[in-house]
Amino acid sequence: MIGFYNYSVILTYISLVSSLFGMMLTVNNHYKLAVLFLAISGLCDMFDGKIARAMKNRTEDEKKFGIQIDSLCDVICFGAFPIILCYKLGMSNPIGIIFLMIYGVASVIRLGFFNVMEEQRQEETDSNRKYYQGLPITSIAVALPILYVTRSFLKGDFIILLHIVIIAIGVLFITNFKFKKPHNITLAAIVVIVSIALANTFWFHWIH
């Protein structure tokens, strides 16, 4: 079989499968569970890089494959999936569609740029990345679940806020600023926040 098969990409594939299942749930109007699977994809993506870097005997081809497969999966998990989900949640008006198109194009530009710069960086140094340029694409997997669990409280304002969040995140994907890469403590805090959002989403799914 073609490709490279080792444990360094397991979480990346789990993230992809989670998002694909989330898309199926979305088109069948199971939004609460769809948001749950988006958050699961985000949690997987937060740690797949750490697992990959822990594997010290990777060849150069395996490293390059890892970069490419991560971005290919990300464009589905955090590009296409959120677009479908947000469209079904209410961004089906002309302005919403335009915002979603901008978000989609920005996500592809960001990932393409990341691939180029990351390959170049790995050729120059073996040290871990300390900063991202622009907002990481995985941020949608934190922002959207947290926003969704406030839906019942926001009521009609939810759709307005959803539009604002999507266009803001899309623009920040391609804005040239330094975003400090989270440390383990910060990642742990993010996991806790998203876990709370997951718990609420799961709870509301069963009581409504």
Rank of each mutant, 00 (worst) to 15 (best):
L11F: 05
T12L: 03
S18W: 02
F21K: 08
M24S: 10
N28M: 14
N28A: 10
K32V: 14
A34K: 11
V35S: 00
A39P: 09
A39G: 06
I40A: 14
S41N: 04
G42H: 14
G42W: 15
L43Q: 02
M46E: 12
D48F: 09
D48Q: 11
D48N: 13
G49A: 15
A52M: 06
R53G: 04
M55S: 01
M55H: 05
K56C: 10
R58D: 05
R58H: 10
T59I: 06
E60H: 00
D61N: 06
E62N: 05
E62G: 08
K63Y: 02
K63T: 01
K64T: 11
Q68E: 08
Q68K: 15
I69S: 04
D70T: 06
D70M: 04
D70R: 01
L72P: 09
D74H: 05
V75T: 10
F81M: 04
F81P: 08
P82E: 04
P82R: 13
P82A: 07
I84W: 06
C86R: 08
K88V: 01
K88G: 11
K88N: 13
G90H: 03
M91S: 10
S92H: 09
N93W: 01
P94W: 09
G96D: 12
I97Q: 10
L100C: 03
V105F: 14
V105M: 11
S107G: 04
S107D: 06
V108Q: 01
R110K: 10
R110A: 07
L111Y: 00
F113N: 09
N115Q: 00
N115V: 01
N115W: 01
E119P: 13
R121M: 09
E123N: 14
T125G: 05
T125N: 00
